[in-house]
Design a protein around this nucleic acid. Structure first.
Lengths: 349, 349
DNA sequence: CTGAAAGCGCTAACAG
DNA sequence: CTGTTAGCGCTTTCAG
């Protein structure tokens, strides 16, 4: 067996070399001040000499809780969750925890498995971004296991855990109003699977806003259960028979499909059809036309979710709160008023 | 302190309820067959009744090696590493390990910290994708600590660890040949920081190929230390005074910058300047023009790196190997022969 | 202020 | 086949 052949010094080795007991060495290492300064010095010296490093997992075994925070996200290949995780990793370390990262790969059974693993690892707390088919399964598992946790993204209020999410309603309403004001009266809402609470919220908020301020607006909704391949197909089918003046893409992958489909069909955007996407990405600045998007405050979501979790870990009691963070609307070229002349673009062609 | 208030059953509880000793219970749980069937059944029943779950970390403490594999990548926000990590997570689990994921956030000091943490966690092995400023620092740390490991991406041969990387030389040579054949005689190589071994390899391979097959080709190189902001600036400066017929972007972020800069300056791509990018992304299909790219075999990199690590964990001895995986060249619209008439595009405009 | 002893949850070793 | 004993590396407790 290959492995760490160099035997590692244990706290007993340190204690022996420093001429004190393991208990004392332990105190020094944990920064407890009730140790004679001379002894503390000796311990620190021994640590240095031996290149001693504590085994945090063994330590956690004894303390009965480990300095680890878990996070389970549905998809690490997705930039959004990459950014979320990345930010939380830093926050966790600043607070003295290690972050254990796991992906449920959009599968409910994996989600359960990963949550159980976090529990088995005795993490201090777990942040969960549920899978797309969110029916609260993940939260239920966490509740069953009596885990301390917080939920982020793709969640509405929950009766057990604090939740942090984007204000889908306000953001969608804002998109609706923008389109109405630009004269659009026939809009397609396009996205993946209606089982996601986020997407449902975005749709109904859009419709409510349309009903309230522009009852004559006709709103089509096309949702696909399948993944990326299906997206393109269902959009294609739809465009065969309908010609809205604007498309509101309900998620990032959808936005990409819309753009390609426009290109395939030689649909001029925004002259023929305007496009607004939910969720921004860097590449949306570089496309032609650049794409208007609802920008989610990822860093803020991370910070709030982490802050809530930390409070709970530290014993904060009380009813779960439900935090809604506001999105920003990024105007770009893909949006045009109906009937107006195209703006002068700086881009190709 | 909030925490897991429900007390968890230990293996002793299981043993007691099953009327056997902890050692026997342990054997059953580990699937060791030398246990009377009746007893094994009783243990399994007790496990079920108690909802028992083993503490894998305590178990690892005793066995002196944990069923964990570590991976340290430079940037989880980067799609490439997201995919790599995601794939390795699955492979690790199939092999009976949990994957501990950490990001060094492109910082050498963090990289060391994360590697040390993996070591402290007594992982069975660690896969490292070094930070951009790769001077072998990460590998040195791993060697110092006598860790079992493998290196992936951004590495050349290493005298201690198996390495798995993309064949930058062949890929770049291929790009060079493609451009030569398309009649390009003035090319810009554009990218981030020359301290990355990958980027250095790509540049010199391109130059070698050009020297060999088209000595009159003029090759400019613009590299930026800074991150994304700097990229745009240095490209802009360059284009102020030069007008190559093609740009070879050495990394994904660069490709995005090139595209935006083209748009800003109303440079028609590919009519005025062709573009080829190293590293593919989904959005490159949807831009106008769609972007030619060198596609890295991410899944393959993951599989090879993992396979090598597993061999080492299982005691495989011998000199470190250096695996080179081949890239695929994806033709798209952004490449045109010099002096030729644009192809009919199906896209906008 | 210190150290001996006990034990976190688990498993290796070995005598029965 | 089974159970006892003795730890893995650490921290807690409590008598000194």
């Amino acid at each position: 067996m290959a492995s760490n052949n160099k035997v590692r010094a244990s706290i007993h080795d340190v204690a022996r070399r420093a001429g004190v007991s393991a208990a004392t060495a332990s105190k020094v290492l944990r920064g407890i001040r009730t140790v004679k300064i001379a002894n503390a010095e000796k311990v620190r010296l021994a640590v240095k000499d031996l290149g001693y490093r504590m085994d945090p997992l063994a330590s956690g075994l004894r303390r009965r809780t480990r300095q680890i925070i878990g996070i389970v996200v549905p998809d690490l290949e997705n930039e959004f969750f990459g950014r979320l995780t990345s930010r939380i990793e830093i926050l966790a370390e600043e607070a003295g925890y290690s972050l254990a990262i796991a992906s449920s790969h959009e599968s409910e059974v994996r989600e359960r498995k990963m949550l159980e693993r976090m529990h088995d690892w005795r993490v201090a707390g777990t942040i969960l971004a549920p899978v797309r088919s969110e029916r609260g399964a993940g939260a239920t598992v966490m509740k069953e296991l009596a885990m301390t946790g917080a939920l982020v993204d793709r969640v509405m209020a929950n009766d057990t855990f604090d939740t942090v999410t984007v204000d889908n309603v306000r953001a969608s309403a804002r998109v609706a109003r923008t389109l109405i004001e630009a004269g659009h009266r026939h809009v397609l809402l396009f996205g993946l699977s209606d089982v996601s609470k986020n997407v449902r919220a975005r749709i109904s908020a859009f419709q409510d806003e349309a009903d309230a301020f522009c009852p004559q607006m006709s709103v089509d909704v096309v949702l696909t259960e399948d993944s990326v391949e299906g997206l393109r197909g269902s959009l294609s089918d739809y465009l065969e028979h309908h010609r809205p003046t604007a498309v509101f893409s309900l998620a990032q992958t959808g936005t990409l499909s819309v753009l390609s489909e426009f290109r395939r069909r030689s649909i001029q955007c925004p002259q023929d059809i305007s496009l607004i996407g939910f969720d921004d990405a860097e590449w949306m600045q570089a496309t032609y036309p650049s794409v208007c998007a609802v920008v989610q405050p990822v860093a803020l979501l991370a910070e709030q979710a982490f802050a809530r979790l930390l409070l709970r870990i530290n014993g904060q009691e009380g009813f779960p709160v439900c935090l809604l963070e506001q999105c920003h609307f990024q105007e770009r070229e893909s949006l045009m008023s109906v009937g107006s002349v195209p703006l002068a673009h700086t881009g190709n062609q």
